Amino acid sequence: MKEQDVSRRKFLKAGAAGLVAVPVAGLGWTTTAAAGGHGDRLDESDPAAQALQYVHNTANPAQNCANCLLYNDPSQTEWGPCAVFPGKLVSANGWCTAWVARG
């Protein structure tokens, strides 16, 4: 066998392992946030929060994070994960401009 063939085989094996590792690593991050109580609470002064006008306590109780489609775990009654702010927990009583009614 040529030296190039061996190197290419090693490269392809490493690439395949890397492709498998990325989604597996992502599962760990999302399950940690979805577990509730784990992860950092979103701060209203966070640039992403400010861009979407996020507040911890909404003025309109009919529209809050707990009844938003993007709130990933509706069983979390105080702080929970949100698809808009990955790795952060939002207040169930919060609101932002990305709010979508849960169907």
Rank of each mutant, 00 (worst) to 15 (best):
Q76V: 07
K88V: 11
C65I: 01
Q50N: 15
M1H: 09
Q63I: 15
H56L: 11
H56M: 06
T97I: 02
A33L: 12
W99M: 01
L70H: 06
K2T: 10
M1Q: 06
L69G: 09
T58H: 05
E78T: 11
A48N: 15
N93E: 06
R9I: 04
Y54P: 09
G80L: 01
L70Q: 03
N72E: 14
D46S: 06
C82A: 07
F11S: 13
C82P: 11
L52W: 10
G18K: 01
G15K: 12
A35R: 00
W79D: 01
Q4Y: 09
T58G: 10
A101W: 08
G39E: 08
R102E: 11
T77P: 05
T32R: 04
G15F: 08
A48C: 05
L69R: 14
G39H: 06
T31R: 12
Q50E: 01
A62G: 08
R41I: 14
A49Y: 06
P74E: 03
W79K: 00
P81V: 09
R8A: 13
V24A: 06
L52P: 11
N57H: 01
V55P: 03
P74Q: 07
N64R: 05
E3N: 07
K13P: 03
A17I: 12
R102A: 01
N60E: 08
A49K: 05
Q63H: 13
E3W: 06
L89A: 13
D40C: 08
L27I: 03
P86Q: 00
Y54L: 06
E3T: 07
E44G: 13
T97K: 09
G87E: 04
P81D: 05
L70I: 01
T31N: 07
D46P: 15
A21M: 15
Q76G: 04
K10E: 15
P81E: 11
C65L: 03
V84Y: 01
T30W: 03
L19E: 11
G103A: 13
G94E: 10
L19R: 04
A92W: 02
L12R: 12
V55I: 00
F11L: 08
G15A: 11
W79R: 00
A66R: 12
G94Q: 06
G28D: 12
G94N: 02
Q63V: 11
C68Y: 04
H56S: 02
L19Q: 13
P81Y: 15
Q50S: 12
T77I: 09
S45T: 08
G37R: 11
A33K: 03
F11D: 03
L42Q: 00
P47M: 00
G28I: 04
Y71C: 00
M1R: 07
A25N: 01
Q53W: 05
A66I: 11
V22Y: 05
K88Y: 14
W79T: 00
E78Q: 05
L27W: 15
N57W: 14
K10L: 10
G26E: 02
A17H: 01
D5Y: 10
L52R: 15
A21S: 00
L12E: 10
Q4C: 05
V84T: 02
